[in-house]
Amino acid sequence: MRFMMIVKATSETEAGVLPSQELIDAMMKYNEELVKAGVLLAGDGLHPSSKGIRISYPEPGGSPKIVDGPFTETKELIAGYYLIDVKSREEAIEWALRMPDAPGVEQGEIELRQVFEAADLTDNPELIAKEEALRKQVEEQNQK
């Protein structure tokens, strides 16, 4: 089962404060552990929302509204993410609890969200097979 670990933004990440070398080293070790365990599918840090763009649809069928960052609600923003493939919810929690925290930085937060699989959405074997084929195609493209 796949989970996304959403690393919430803090005032430091939103200010563009780069992590210390100590934290970079700890995160690299953590990333290596995820890879060695065979659970890491993807993961990246994100630039602050000041470099972001938000697209919203204020009215059904209406035109999209495009707004440049920064965005004010830090607690609703993310600073990075990991996509992991684990055997259980408990294993996802274990990996999230192992993530290094920046010393001296305000309290952080990680949100875990299970990713829908095709079989969670439909029992149609043709659609499930098509989804699996598309996923395999994406994996092959990413290996190039």
Score class of each variant (00 low, 15 high):
Met1Glu: 12
Met4Pro: 03
Met4Val: 14
Met5Phe: 02
Ile6Ala: 11
Val7Phe: 13
Val7Trp: 09
Ser11Arg: 14
Ser11Phe: 03
Ser11His: 11
Thr13Gln: 10
Ala15Asn: 10
Ala15Glu: 10
Ser20Pro: 07
Leu23Asp: 06
Leu23Glu: 11
Ile24Arg: 09
Asp25Tyr: 08
Met28Ala: 15
Tyr30Pro: 01
Glu32Cys: 02
Leu34Asp: 00
Leu34Val: 05
Val35Gly: 00
Lys36Val: 01
Ala37Asp: 00
Ala37Gln: 00
Gly38Ile: 13
Gly38Glu: 05
Leu40Lys: 04
Leu41Arg: 10
Leu41Ile: 15
Gly43Ala: 03
Gly43Met: 03
Asp44Trp: 08
Gly45Asn: 13
Leu46Gly: 03
His47Phe: 02
Pro48Gln: 07
Ser49Arg: 04
Lys51Asn: 05
Ile53Ala: 13
Ile55Glu: 03
Ile55Ser: 07
Ser56Ala: 15
Pro58Thr: 08
Glu59Ala: 09
Gly61Asp: 09
Gly62Arg: 11
Ser63Met: 13
Ile66Phe: 13
Val67Ser: 14
Val67Glu: 15
Asp68Cys: 07
Asp68Ile: 09
Gly69Ala: 08
Pro70Ser: 05
Glu73Ala: 09
Thr74His: 06
Lys75Gln: 14
Glu76Pro: 04
Ile78Arg: 12
Ile78His: 10
Tyr82Gln: 10
Tyr82Phe: 13
Leu83His: 01
Ile84Gly: 01
Ile84Cys: 02
Arg89Asn: 13
Glu90Cys: 04
Glu94Cys: 00
Trp95Glu: 09
Arg98Cys: 01
Met99Cys: 12
Pro100Gln: 10
Ala102Asp: 10
Gly104Pro: 12
Val105Tyr: 07
Gln107Ile: 09
Glu109Ala: 14
Glu109Asp: 06
Ile110Thr: 05
Ile110Lys: 06
Leu112Thr: 01
Arg113Pro: 07
Arg113Gln: 14
Gln114Thr: 06
Glu117Cys: 03
Ala118Trp: 08
Ile128Ala: 01
Ala129Gly: 04
Lys130Asn: 06
Arg135Leu: 15
Lys136Trp: 06
Lys136Ser: 12
Gln137Glu: 11
Glu139Ala: 15
Gln141Asp: 09
Gln143Ser: 15
Gln143Arg: 14
Lys144Glu: 11
